[in-house]
Measured scan of single mutants.
Amino acid sequence: HHHHHGSGALAALHAEGPLAGLPVTRSDARVLIFNEWEERKKSDPWLRLDMSDKAIFRRYPHLR
């Protein structure tokens, strides 16, 4: 159930192989992290948004 927010940013994801479903670039990863943060913020208003490279690598090590 993907609803768009204002920016309408869509992340490019790997379609197949071992990385299927994972973001292709760091900016794609940022979109995913932001979208998930927006969702989680509803139940956790104090949740901090962390889109640093460090956060991205921790989450998606293949982007190193």
Rank of each mutant, 00 (worst) to 15 (best):
D53Y: 08
H3E: 08
P18W: 04
D44E: 13
H3L: 11
Y60A: 01
R58F: 12
S27K: 14
E38Q: 15
K54E: 15
A15T: 14
H4R: 10
W37V: 02
H5Q: 14
R30D: 03
S43M: 14
P61A: 04
N35K: 15
M51A: 06
I33F: 05
S7F: 14
W37S: 01
G8H: 13
D50L: 04
R40P: 01
R64P: 04
G21W: 03
E38F: 15
A11L: 06
R58W: 09
T25A: 07
P61N: 02
M51R: 04
F34M: 07
L63R: 00
R64S: 09
R59F: 05
S27I: 11
L22K: 06
M51Y: 07
S52L: 01
H4W: 14
A55G: 05
R26N: 08
S43I: 13
E16K: 08
W46A: 13
A9C: 13
R48D: 07
A55V: 10
S43K: 11
K41T: 08
R48H: 10
H5G: 10
S43P: 04
L32H: 03
I56N: 02
H2N: 10
D53C: 08
L10C: 10
E36K: 04
L49W: 03
H1Y: 07
L19I: 03
A29S: 01
A12K: 14
A20S: 08
L22A: 03
E36G: 03
D28C: 06
A55Q: 08
A55R: 05
G6I: 15
S27T: 10
S27P: 05
K54P: 07
L32M: 07
P45V: 06
E38G: 07
L13V: 13
K42A: 08
H4D: 08
H5W: 15
A9P: 11
A11K: 03
G17F: 03
H14S: 02
H14M: 03
K42M: 08
G21Y: 04
L22R: 03
R30N: 04
G17M: 02
A29Y: 01
A55P: 02
R26M: 15
R30V: 06
N35M: 15
S52V: 01
H5E: 11
W37Q: 02
P23M: 01
K41V: 14
I56E: 00
Y60L: 01
L22H: 03
